[in-house]
Amino acid sequence: MNDKLSSFLVDLASDPERMSRFLADPHGLLAEADLTDDQKAAVLSRDSRRLAVALGTVSKSNGNVQNLSGGNVQNVSIGNVQNVTIGNVQNVSIGNVQNVTSRRTGKGPKKAGKKPAEKRGSKNK
């Protein structure tokens, strides 16, 4: 069941034209998709927690991580020496996280955290 949703999302992610169609007319593209109503609703919501539930990587009850391999692959390094080197050279100096602009929708500045906070709160009940 989740394979169909996964395939739908991979198609979107891999095909810029298809993504453009989705962004312009999500209902139109979803009408052609072989997905359940719940899956379509999750896609339309564009809510990462809701999509994770639809994909089966988190539980419906609290929106938390259920898939043991999912969520994070970074290792806790207790007792180990990590070979991570940071060596970036950066050229611009901006340090304000208040004016975050949506990078995908271009919806303009929004107050960082307000919307996700509401979303997450409602999922975790």
Partner: peptide, 15 residues
């Protein structure tokens, strides 16, 4: 939390 799916926004919560 970075967005894992291209149709989603990252989760950014300031507290």
């Amino acid at each position: 939390e970075a967005a894992q799916l291209p149709i989603c926004e990252p989760i950014i919560k300031m507290i």
